[in-house]
């Protein structure tokens, strides 16, 4: 049976051989995530139904929810019921907004994704560039500067640097846009295409909105990038530095291969671990977005989660965590697949 499967696998092209087993692995991983989110709420003292409905709930509503969640049954039956609800897209009703949690999350997801997307691009650009320059030109100004930056960036709280940036560039200098949401309150949102205001405004050809949206993105994106690029840079430095010191780079130099060709080859060799690091970065950024969104009143998933915490809105919190973990799992999946695709040494 197993060998038959393997044989079938070996007939597929290499890329599919890598992707298929990974996809199969996603199912048990998602199951594990469901397990954790389910028991998270069970940690709470008291009646989960009351917690999920809030203190204002009528006894009838509590009894109804108890029935629906199967709270009168054993915990395993409850877990299965929970899984079934999630599979049907039922994440419960938010106590605070009174909307279905799934609707709330879908509404807010583009704001967070847009923020993370641009932060990611800036972070990778800064991190990789600084890392490569500091390794290739050791002892230079960049080398010393990056060392100080690497230490400092790891120590700066993102919520604090965000506030400092607001103070300097908005309150004092007046250069930056106000930290109140994704777009000027006087403007209306661009028609929905992707949910990214910058892209939607471009599609609609509305440059006023584009300008406002880009301006609002500037400070939060810089906040996220400044803090996270340091970590990315340090990890890339160590990966790229190891490759740069490896015998094959020295040998290429002894063979008279031009320096820029060698740098390209070394980067190509550092790519697999860098892809993994960038994958982790998405996780960091999602966590950091929770704080940064709060500061900039961003109205995304992060701010929603913070509100849920402050209002003891457990269905919303549970839903957010589930979606966040699922998102990260998918990112890791993509990272794993890319990693194996770019490294020919990995035996399938």
């Amino acid at each position: 049976m197993l060998t038959g499967l393997r044989r079938f696998q070996q007939m597929l092209p290499r890329s599919l051989q890598i992707i298929l087993p990974r996809l199969l692995l996603l199912a048990p991983q998602m199951f594990g995530v469901l397990f954790v989110t389910f028991f998270l709420i069970r940690l709470l003292p008291g009646d989960p139904a009351v917690l999920l409905l809030g203190n204002m709930a009528t006894p009838e509503a509590v009894a109804q929810l108890r029935e629906r969640l199967g709270l009168n049954d054993s915990i395993w039956v409850q877990f299965i019921a929970y899984c079934r609800n999630v599979l049907h897209g039922d994440l419960g009703i938010s106590i605070f907004t009174s909307h279905p949690v799934l609707t709330d999350l879908m509404e807010r997801a583009p704001a967070t994704l847009e923020l993370i997307f641009y932060a990611m691009i800036l972070t990778v650009a800064i991190g990789l560039l600084l890392a490569v320059v500091s390794v290739v030109r050791p002892g230079g100004f960049t080398d010393v500067a990056t060392r100080i930056y690497g230490l400092a960036a790891g120590a700066i709280p993102d919520f604090w640097i965000g506030l400092i940036l607001i103070f300097v560039f908005f309150s004092k200098l007046g250069w930056a846009a106000a930290p109140f949401g994704r777009i000027d309150a006087m403007l209306s949102e661009p028609p929905y295409v992707t949910g990214f205001y910058t892209i939607d405004a471009l599609v609609a050809g509305d440059f006023g909105v584009l300008h406002s949206a880009a301006g609002r993105l500037l400070l939060p994106v810089i906040t996220l990038a400044v803090v996270n690029a340091g970590a990315l840079m340090k990890m890339t430095q160590s990966v790229f530095g190891k490759v740069w010191a490896s015998p094959f780079v020295r040998h290429a130099r002894a063979s008279g291969v031009p320096e820029r060709v060698i740098i390209r080859a070394a980067l190509r060799n550092s790519l697999p671990p860098i892809i993994t690091i960038v994958g982790f970065l998405v996780g960091f950024l999602l966590g950091a977005a929770v704080l940064v969104e709060t500061i900039f009143s961003w109205g995304g998933l992060g701010q929603y989660a913070v509100q849920a915490v402050m209002n003891s809105d457990y269905p919303a919190l549970q839903g957010f965590i589930l979606v966040a973990a699922a998102f990260i799992l998918v990112v890791y999946l993509i990272v794993d697949i890319l990693y194996e695709l770019v490294d020919p040494r990995i035996r399938v």
Binding site: F248, H251, R253, A254, S255, G256, V257, A265, N269
Partner: peptide, 24 residues
């Protein structure tokens, strides 16, 4: 100097597997 390395004097090193770019 770059043209000299490999062009006029070439090097063969120890432990050949490490001297080759692993992903090319």
């Amino acid at each position: 100097r770059r043209a000299f390395r490999g062009g006029e004097v070439a090097l063969i090193g120890t432990n050949a597997k490490e001297l080759l770019d692993p992903v090319v």
